[in-house]
Design a protein around this nucleic acid. Sequence first.
DNA 1: GAATATATAGACCGGTTGATCTACCTGTCA
DNA 2: TGACAGGTAGATCAACCGGTCTATATATTC
Lengths: 188, 188
Amino acid sequence: MATRTAAGPRQRLLEAAEELTYSRGMNVGVDAILKRANVARRSLYEHFGGKDGLVTAVLERTTEADERHYRETMDAAGDDPRKRLLAVFDGLEAVIAEPTFRGCRYLSADLALADPDHPAHAVTREYRRRITALLEHELTRLRHRAAGRAAAQLFVLIDGALAAGATRRAEAATGVGEVAELIIDAGL
Amino acid sequence: MATRTAAGPRQRLLEAAEELTYSRGMNVGVDAILKRANVARRSLYEHFGGKDGLVTAVLERTTEADERHYRETMDAAGDDPRKRLLAVFDGLEAVIAEPTFRGCRYLSADLALADPDHPAHAVTREYRRRITALLEHELTRLRHRAAGRAAAQLFVLIDGALAAGATRRAEAATGVGEVAELIIDAGL
DNA sequence: GAATATATAGACCGGTTGATCTACCTGTCA
DNA sequence: TGACAGGTAGATCAACCGGTCTATATATTC
């Protein structure tokens, strides 16, 4: 039987680290994470080998969840590829408007982790590749003339909306959906 | 007479901090900056009051230079507002392609400086306002139907290009100029 | 009941952080 | 000459960093 006591230390560590690395940045101290998770110091090193392992595991968890979120957003918009793509940008504006929004976790991670060999970079790179592929797939279904190029452009737009949202909430996501429409329709 | 010996400590501190906060991030240590500037520890606190004051002064310096750079880029493109705007995005692609490019200094600063009251945030906010105004001015000259909105969209595009450039050089700036054209022409 | 694996609590390590301080050196100007 | 502002060099500080360690408690399993 699995433990019955409200999630083990490993799970609590992942959740605490996910929250704190987002709200306080990747440079948050190990002590703060341990305190929040109510976990002994040693358990962190048993389960994840160190801080690097923990934050990498966090990113693996959130990228999976975020990719799932993208898919669900599109599925909820029906079957029309154009509507599915635009739904992504509507969802983006909603995410940025949330009071807890503090920017793109993956961009922050890549900027904060100066060491180019940090395992976290591989996770974020793979995540971006998958989301771009998701966009390209819909563009291809739409018979877009340059699906690959347009997918890259849409993703730059996503990056821009998230970056702008982090630095100036209000006017940030002003009409990114509109721009997405322009990119999509330019190739039809 | 001003000192003759190749720039005083204040200047050297600004230059060293400008380089190191960019290449190693805002979290670079004071020691590294002092060593690079060849300046005594005390001088930093005499001139800038502390690290916060120094990095804020650095941002004030670079925002001025960057705004000047935007203006020069546009002026070099002649008088046609549309060409002047597109020149900005051509310049952007060039900047990102440079091997020393490591992302937008101001986005990094805002993300790394968690404290919302840090004086650096005011500097970056003002910078973004000025650049957006620059874009809006050209759009107005073009008689764009929604100059304010389009300026905001163009700036999101700039943010996106710089963010994308920081995380995946190669395909990053793929056709941001193309998207800029779409935004500009959509309102004519 | 004993053994084992898995927690916890917390002392401790060396290293680094930003900041303060004293002591000394050097050029300029009255 | 002497005073002084402005620079250098470096010791020192408390706080914090990630990581290792010992000792103890608590379960599960044989």
